[in-house]
Design a protein around this nucleic acid. Structure first.
Lengths: 205, 205, 205, 205
DNA sequence: TATGAATGAGCCTTCATTCAT
DNA sequence: TATGAATGAAGGCTCATTCAT
């Protein structure tokens, strides 16, 4: 519950104009539904101008998805590192990091869950490796918690994945102008996540 | 738990060859990443032969998604109707129906969660209406459970959505040749789902 | 000026449903802009049903254009034959026949002037031969009139063609619900045609 | 008769290669009978190369027909403006302008009279407005002539249209290697046109 | 650096036509 | 006789990408 750590702080994403434009279009129309021309137009570039910065449409997708996964991994690791050593604290921190990321990097996260199959085989393998690394990070915490008795679930791996699924799903429906502020959403989902792994739900019932 | 009903029984889906082929390709490559030629080839048809049965590529997508949502709604309603009147029984039945559907109609369900944006505006609105209806069905059960005191959660609507998200997510990763049989998966996720809404977890710690 | 002769009488054209439908579509969209399916639909036939009556789309065009030219030739010849032997009377009769045809067979005549290039080379040659025959019929009358002194023009062939052009052009703009009745239009254009070849204009000036 | 003016001078039309190729094909095969591939080939371009210059096949047709009508209107107005104020002189000038245009811009003029129905509704309306403007220009001259007594016809509007029809029709049959030189044809048709409106036929009979 | 112009390949769709039933 | 189903070829158009300037 310590409030330190830059992993909680989000500023406007620092994507280049080209990547930002590609992101916008991919969110709305998908990778295959978006043309290079649309991306260039959205970036205020000519088509060859766009190719000056990125060698292919695929490179734009990779640029978005890799940066996203790197940022998520960094924030999650930083969150866990900044938390105490108890599985409960580490779980809370990582889940909060996951939630904040999927709230504040909604578009990028949506493209990541949506366009994996649009990656070339090589790029896909690399991306999936990172994603699995992220999942294993949470898996380890849940396993620690069960082992040490602070979590109580007969199927920790499944529970861990369910938690990830819920958090990732936030990117699909969360709207900044919706009924929940980011911190409210974090509170709600943290509660749900704790229940999922059989943790003590922070002071509540 | 022993209520029988056809909503538990799955046979090979009765999609026409054209729809079946479209489904296969959409799963692998997405709607915009799939060409009509590929669909026709997969169905053993010439391109005009395909158009003899469906007027457009979009109609194929609608055919898949509408049939899917109709089947899910029917199975879910049938499951709830066949359960007792207690929120717990209804919750279990509907969650099981959701899970079985996303296990046995994995491809169709995956396309449904993935290609909503590929629907034309009109078709999209119609589809979303059905999807919301499905969500409301579970929302009502959870609300009933909280009201009657058998469920215990301070944010029933969010919990209900989280449950749906988890169940729908199953279609993304479940593999028939994986470690979990359908009934095992149902048992695991039913436990997780009950925890999410604060229900008594069926006799299990 | 004798009012006898069936060449003045027009009843609904006796085109078969298939030809009538083809005619309608060709008028609105042109030959190449019309599909066999549209023609079949307009005729209340299935596509193979249409092919039962006509072996090809081209045959429909030929059916329309040949029937049209045959009817025009027949009416024009009959008009000339029924007129006196004087060039003036023959001229008047033939021009009236031309005008009435282009008024009452407007659609068919429009397609004839419009779709010559859509005919296959063989069919085109045959059609043009008939059209030239029609033109020569008027040319001969004008030549006779000039020779016998009742017409006065230094360029009879050009005048004859100009007359034909004007009469044929009527099909392009005449509307039954327009300001001119058929007989009024005949009167007006007969006057203009006589002036063109330098004939005495029936009692006027 | 000796009024000079650029409206009499014709040089090779300055259509772009794409428009020139489209024009050639449209003349031979009609709009709907011509494929974009043929147009591109005729222009020495690839298909996308063609689309780089024109956004659609329809735009090519509009490009041809609009430029044509604009040129005709400009030449006709310039002809009338350069003539004296007498209806006779203005009539002669405008008719000559019409004839020269339909001789020297034969193809373009032919497509204009032939492909109106191939224009999209909006484009068609715009084109017809210009065409009507052209017709009204001649109508006004003929009306003036009748009013001032130099023309003698009981149906000036019909005569005016007949004159236009004849002149426009020239594009259908005139061949540069035929028996009539442009100036000969102008002389012949000017004579015929004057007769049509009951004008004094320039010194002839 | 940035762009106007270009392209081979491919897109979704429709064509005129055929044939088993 | 009439039709449901089918097809090779082609339709208009756009794709990601390149290159001379």
């Amino acid at each position: 519950m310590t409030v330190t750590g830059t992993w909680r702080t989000y500023e406007g994403s620092n994507l280049s104009p080209a990547l930002a434009s590609a992101l916008n279009k991919f969110v709305e129309q998908g990778y295959h539904g978006t043309s290079v021309r649309q991306i260039a137009a959205g970036a205020g570039l000519s088509v060859p101008g766009l190719y000056h910065h990125f060698p292919s449409k695929q490179a734009l997708l990779v640029g978005i998805m890799d940066a996203s996964m790197d940022e998520l991994l960094e924030r999650t690791r930083s969150a866990e590192a900044g938390a105490g050593s108890s599985p409960s604290d580490r779980f809370d921190a990582v889940v909060e990091a996951l939630l904040l990321f999927h709230i504040h990097r909604r578009d990028v996260a949506f493209v990541c869950s949506t366009e994996i199959r649009s990656l070339d085989p090589t790029n896909r393998a690399a991306y999936i490796a990172k994603r699995d690394e992220e999942q294993r990070l949470l898996d380890a915490i849940v396993a620690d918690g069960v082992e040490s008795g602070v979590f109580d679930t007969p199927h920790p791996a499944d529970a861990s994945r369910a938690v990830t699924t819920m958090c990732v799903g936030v990117a699909t429906w969360y709207r900044p102008d919706g009924p929940l502020s980011p911190s409210e959403l974090v509170a709600v989902y943290l509660d749900i996540a704790r229940r999922t792994v059989g943790a003590a739900t922070g002071g509540q019932a």
